[in-house]
Each structure stands twice: as C-alpha cells, then as structure tokens.
C-alpha cells in the first residue's frame, strides 16, 4: 500500500534500523514536505545511522555538524578566506551546504550558532559577508537534542522550535530487535551495502507532487479543529499557531503520498498530530508539575475531537 519508490527508502532505513518503521516514515514525511525534524533522544540509539541511511537512499549529499559550546556560526555556514594567489576572498562553504544534514546536539551550542542554522532552515539560503547564497534542494535538517543533560545547554526558544516540522523520539529497540541489531553489525556496518533508490531529481518531483495531494474541506476543518483545541485546552499556556496547522496539513499530504494515496484521510491527521503539535504548545507550569506532557495533552485532544465522516452541507 506504500508508494513504491518511497517504500524502498523505508526498506533501506529498516535495513540498518531494526523495528523503527514509525521513525523512518516520519523522516520520509518530513523530507517530502520539505520540513525539518527535531529528534529528541539519548545518544546511541541510531540517529546518525538513520539519517545516513536516508541520505544514501536518495543519493543526497550528507553532512554532519556536531554542535559544541564553542562552535561558531562560520563553522556552520562557511567562511570567506583570502586567497593570496587571486587576491580576493574565496568562500569556503560550511557543512550546511549539503542536502541532508545531521545537526547533532543542537542545544549544546550558543544561540548565535543555533540561529545561523535555523535561519538557513527557514530561508533556504544563507548570507555570508553580504552575499546571499541559496542552499541546495532538497535541504533537510535532522537536529537532535539530548533530553537528559540540561547542564550547560542552550534550550531552543519556542519560536525556533516552530521551525521544525515535527519532533520525534527514537526510543530503544526491544530485546529481540536489539539482538537483530547485534547480528547485523557483527561483521560490518550494513550502511555500506545500501544503494540509492531515488535520485535527487525524483525526490524534488515528489516534493512538488505532495502539494497536489487532495485535502478535503472536511479534513481541513478537522485540522483546524485540533489546532483550536490546543489553544483552548486548560493545561496549555500557548497553543499551536496557524503555522502549526499548515505544518499538519503538509505533513498529512506527505504521509498520504507515502501510503500511496492522493488524498488525505483523518487517519493521517490523527497519526501525525502529536508529532506536529507537541513541540509547538507550551504547557502551563501547573501541568508540568503534575507530570502532564504535551504528548498527553495531544492524546486527550484527539480523543475528544470528532472525526468528520460525512459532508456537513449537502451541495
């Protein structure tokens, strides 16, 4: 039932990441919707592996930035160096000038460096020494942050969290899956065996096609309904913005395409809503003290929002 080409990407990712179909799907969704992913997880669960597999599957240029407190913006976007031979400044592109970028531990670096990356994500271009340089397409950032170490971190501000299409966790594999991981990695890393299943050109076509996926008015009203509920929920200080609604729609379209459909179902919206909205809503402090998470709130909202199953008005 999957889109045949996109299913190959999933198979590639699964080849290296055992039992992480959800995460793989979400990554592909973000890639198709031209969004970026915030991955919140402990180290060592295979984040890098997954991004590399994704990059390799689409034949993309993969770059990795390890964020540290002393990283400078120029380390991310690149720097102009004086070339004594030609007597002029020459631009040396930074790691952001790739197609698929893993921004590891993004909250470890200073806000100045963070914003350099985030600006690139938002605008699709960077400005160095007054020269604006357009980034390659596709441009896909998967940023990770470590949820347990808050010492010496610079948490991303809410406005910047909004720039990520979706936020997800990888989670640990279960015992059986972990044994399988060990088996596969015993001899050699399977990542080397992967071959591209999609050209960049094809990927760009798919990104364009995603916009054609039909979103019925009933679905749109369902999305708006959900967004509204986040704004009025008693535990929520700040709900999802209209940008959040747009994000949910785009992601739903991509998800529908991934599943071989050219129209969005409420099921798509339901599946994606927690990933899209959780990092966009700010809980009240009381709720936080009570141990309620944004995911819990989303779950409750979904359990209270009616799914549209027929036309509201007969044309």
């Amino acid at each position: 039932m999957y889109h045949p080409k996109l299913e190959n990407i999933l198979l590639n990712i699964e080849h290296v990441m055992i039992g992480k179909r959800n995460v793989a799907e979400l990554s592909v969704v973000a890639l198709l919707a031209q969004g970026h992913v915030l991955l919140e997880d402990v180290p060592g669960v295979g984040k890098t592996m997954m991004v590399r597999a994704l990059a390799k599957s689409v034949g993309a240029n993969f770059k990795r930035i390890q964020f540290t407190p002393d990283l400078l913006p120029s380390d991310v976007i690149g720097v102009s160096i004086f070339n004594p031979k030609e007597l002029e400044f020459q631009f040396r592109p930074g790691p952001i000038m790739g197609n698929i970028i893993l921004a590891d531990e993004i909250n470890r670096t200073s806000p100045k460096t963070q914003s350099a990356l985030l600006e690139g994500m938002e605008e699709g271009s960077i400005t160095v020494d007054g020269v604006t340089r357009t980034l390659d397409k596709p441009f896909f950032v998967m940023a990770t942050q470590n949820p347990i170490e808050y010492e010496g971190t610079y948490p991303l501000p809410e406005a910047q969290l909004d720039r990520f299409l979706l936020k997800m966790r990888m989670g640990y594999p279960n015992a059986r899956e972990e044994i399988e991981v060990l088996n596969r990695l015993q001899i050699a890393s399977p990542i080397d065996q992967l071959s591209p299943v999609l050209t960049l050109e094809e990927l760009r076509d798919l990104q364009r096609e995603v916009k054609e996926v039909v979103v019925d008015d009933t679905i749109k009203s369902y999305i708006v309904d959900l967004a509204n509920k986040t704004r009025n929920h008693p535990n929520v200080y700040l709900g999802a913005s209209p940008r959040g609604s747009i994000a949910l729609m785009k992601a739903s379209q991509a998800y529908a395409m991934l599943h071989g459909r050219d129209y969005v179902l409420p099921d798509d919206v339901q599946f994606l809503a927690p990933y899209i909205f959780s990092h966009r809503i700010i809980l009240k402090s009381e709720a936080k003290y009570e141990g309620i998470s944004a995911e819990d709130v989303m779950e409750r909202i979904l359990a209270r929002t009616h799914v549209p199953v027929q036309r509201l008005v007969n044309e």
Partner: peptide, 27 residues
Amino acid sequence: YPKAYLSLLKQLDRYGLKRKDTQTLRS
C-alpha cells in the same frame, strides 16, 4: 453510495458496534 454507507454505519450502531465520534472510519 454514501447514503447506503451511512445507513450501514447506523445499522452497525444499532447492532452494538458503535463507532466513537473520534474514531476514524478506517480504524
């Protein structure tokens, strides 16, 4: 067809297999 389908939903409801309002058709 949509009418027929909706009456099927109603009949299933009468049968005791009610769809929750928040449940999608597919599930």
